[in-house]
Design a protein around this nucleic acid. Structure first.
Lengths: 193, 193
DNA sequence: TGTACATCAGTGAACGCGCGTTCACTGATGTAC
DNA sequence: TGTACATCAGTGAACGCGCGTTCACTGATGTAC
């Protein structure tokens, strides 16, 4: 009696995620999630009593997966190339849909402490991974310094997604900007005392 | 008969702005705006036929003012200090309320082309101002290069606002991080070929 | 100076809608005897 | 092997709410004669 329930609650999160990515949080409703998952509203409430519960579960799962993906992608590279390879990977994954989801996430986090906590955990892990990469490139920098610099790198990447607002839909920044970005990050990693 | 109307439509935008900053877009409604402005719903519709009209007018006015303020603040400084002084000014102005408003703005821009256009115009001007400051520090860099580097600086600042999500409410990043930021931006302005 | 009239500014009830959530109820499934 | 029963999974109507918007109507204000 439990296997069916687990598959169902997963399917519900799948439906909710699809809706959230495609149409944004403003158009996400319990009734639409239920319809998308092919169940009655009452059954949705059986698994997730309130809308907040669905959203929190959805984001927990999503952020955990994003972290796992990023960790796996990083591990496959030789250490020296890890930093720049990760840059490219992040830029490549920053599709329009993903960006929109993050913007909704930030707005949501401003009002829901649990979402804020999940978001913060996500970025903490993200920063730590970048800090590791920085110390691989130059092991002499201290842990704390590397973490601060990693924070700047993460800020750069997240900020770049914002600056794409209203631009003709390009998957990522243009080549020249990407070159400037690589140069700046390399300087931060190798040159700045 | 026209002066009264102009004052009224301004007061409506004031009321809407207060609500948006205090409670976020999710809780912004025509009825609440009307109540806040002390008028009947029908009268609100007389000035702004739809909710979209209010929001667009509100953001237009708000972004224009932010641009004007930033320009004025920059003009008062000696050119050499302009870059770092602006950094501090931006960080100081990034209050919790302002951040929340920007997050709502980005989410909104993803679904409303007119909001997206206003947002883009805002960031274009922002980037141009930073590019000017960069060229003041080192006039030998080309216009295009300066613009790209300015974009990285703007991305850094906007990204830092995102990374404050879920952190104990500090007005700005801590001193050590701020030092790293200044160092990085100075390197970008002065050292990187 | 008074009056007719168009326009501006404003009211508040009403419509219809989608929402989150509740609830009484039903069938399916596993377990204990 | 059959039966009683608790629990799991699921239905769909209903409640009450706030929403954006419409609309018929009213008063205030300026303008033309």
């Amino acid at each position: 009696v439990r296997e069916k329930g687990r598959r169902r609650s997963d399917a519900i999160l799948d439906a909710a995620t699809t809706l959230l990515v495609d149409e944004g949080y403003a158009r996400l409703s319990m009734r639409r999630i239920a319809a998308r998952a092919g169940i009655a509203p009452g059954n949705l409430q059986y698994y997730y009593p309130t809308k907040q519960d669905v959203v929190r579960a959805l984001l927990d799962r999503w952020l955990a997966r994003a972290r796992a993906d990023a960790a796996a992608a990083g591990r496959e590279r030789p250490p020296e190339h890890r930093l720049l390879a990760s840059l490219d990977a992040v830029l490549a994954e920053a599709s329009d849909a993903n960006c929109r989801l993050f913007w909704d996430l930030w707005a949501l986090a401003a009002r829901d402490p649990i979402v804020a906590r999940a978001t913060r955990t996500f970025y903490d892990r993200y920063r730590d991974a970048v800090a590791d990469a920085l110390r691989t490139v130059r092991p002499t920098v201290g842990r704390a310094v590397a973490q601060r610099r990693a924070m700047l790198v993460v800020a750069l990447l997240e900020g770049l997604s914002v600056l794409r607002i209203g631009r003709p839909r390009t998957g990522m920044p243009d080549a020249a900007l990407r070159r400037e970005l690589r140069t700046l990050v390399l300087h931060l990693a190798k040159e700045i005392p």
